[in-house]
Design a protein around this nucleic acid. Structure first.
Lengths: 256, 256
DNA sequence: AAACCAAATTGACATTTATCAATCGGAACG
DNA sequence: CGTTCCGATTGATAAATGTCAATTTGGTTT
């Protein structure tokens, strides 16, 4: 592996605390590999032999049951995935598929677990990383159970607005059907949800969402740090920005 | 704290691997406290000062948004809760409320984190524990997004059937409204879902669910280890029974 | 035993969401 | 430059789910 890549990996929260020797050890048998778009890296139910770290591109995590499938998360660099399965030496609960050509670091699960047991600092980092992922999922469930489709879409837009940095325009970085699945609705209903948001100052042209009037949108969406993660990627969350101040002017819902 | 209680705690997966000294250290400032039913121990958004371990009774984890609330999990002994928040020194994402009179062990978060950093074996145990919780949530989301209300109920019954050990009768151990919220539906629709299951050999009398014909029920429910955790409690999962054989006679859905 | 209360159930209805079919539109390709 | 294909959209309809109000039920209190 190239030195520059190693440097990039070393700077991740997950690896920053560990000793040099052990870092070399984990990355010893690691592959940095490039996959084409639309490739399924891992099927749910499969045994997991590697920890995956998305360095570039996009990966979808999805679940299947009874011929239906649902997108559980869309990952952007830099995100780990199937970490929990690696830690527990268990089978994958989600399939992982590239949405774009992606560069992915694969670390042998065996070595990963061994080093965890040797290096307390590293084990703590792993615990932290999984904890961040866990909290991402808690938010995800709350989002799913407490909001309706239009509300989920409105909050998705606000989240992307923050992450993409442009207050006026948000770009959907993949097919809308994928977004629909992520938001727990059909592609048809996503279209209708966008139509409803026209009343709240949203205009859609292709993949581009234009936010004309942020205030009514926020009033509808009622974003909340206990449901929305307006910071790094959801599932491989770097855990940062957890305790930042919330929306400039909106009081938090309910207590505390 | 009594020696018998310490013994019980020591035998938990989470604490079994650590050194004696450090075990004494963590449990030093720990309280074993009894709370009445219906008491909220912690509100979502609150800072978390303790790791909680439910030793006896029942605790509901729930989330709120916009005056709606939803039950995310119902815990039974022995389960840890809000572990991820403790690890990350973050605020709680869920409220925790006793459903019954409960005995709960409270371990100071500060000390917990300190010991984690000192004892690699313990840190690994924590990572494992959180990973188990994470996988519980993944199943929960898949259950929520891929199944309809009646299917979720049918699978709930099958899960309880396994956990309670009686193949003919399952007892709902709390109010039905709580179950409805856990399953992501209203109390009214839970009643209707039970009515629908009459066609599949289910009879309900109060809290008692009688399973007359298991076969049609299973055919409807299509239980699957990637969505259902037919073993220990969901959120404080001891991680056991993860790779057990699946339903005696039902092939697993789809691939692998 | 009567009265009372809250949870559970039932019915009628509204809303949301899914499904199916048809059409539109843009990108890729010959 | 037109054709083709696939995703997105739209409309019509069905199914699922939620809401509201009225009972019913079961347990507890008096």
């Amino acid at each position: 592996m190239k030195a520059a890549d190693l440097e990039r990996i070393r700077s991740l929260q997950l690896f920053s605390g560990m000793s040099e020797d052990q870092f070399n050890d984990v990355t010893q048998g690691a592959y940095l590999q490039t996959f084409p778009a639309g490739l399924t890296l891992l099927y749910e139910g499969d045994p997991v032999d590697f920890l995956y770290i998305l360095m570039d591109g996009a990966v979808e995590l999805q679940g299947t049951w009874n011929d239906k499938e649902s997108t559980l998360a869309i990952l952007r660099p830099i995100s780990t995935f199937i970490l929990a399965a690696v830690v527990l030496e268990a089978n994958a609960l989600m399939s992982a598929r590239t949405l774009e050509k992606s560069q992915i670091l694969m670390i042998p699960a065996e070595a990963f677990r061994r080093i965890m047991a040797e290096d307390a600092a590293f084990a703590v980092s792993v615990a932290r990383e999984v904890s961040g992922c866990y909290r991402g999922l808690v938010r995800s469930i709350k989002n799913q159970k407490l909001r309706n489709g239009t509300e989920r879409l409105a909050n998705y837009i606000l989240t992307q607005q923050v992450r993409q940095g442009n207050p006026d325009v948000v770009v959907i970085p993949h097919e809308k059907r994928t977004l629909a699945s992520l938001l727990g609705m059909t592609a048809e209903n996503l279209s209708r949800a966008f139509a409803q948001l026209a009343d709240y100052g949203i205009e859609v042209h292709g993949a581009e969402i234009r936010i004309l009037r942020p205030v009514p949108l926020r009033r509808l969406a009622k974003p909340n740090p206990l449901l929305d993660n307006h910071a790094p990627p959801g599932m491989g969350g770097s855990g940062k920005a957890e305790k930042e101040m919330w929306p400039p002017s909106l009081g938090m819902a309910g207590r505390a």
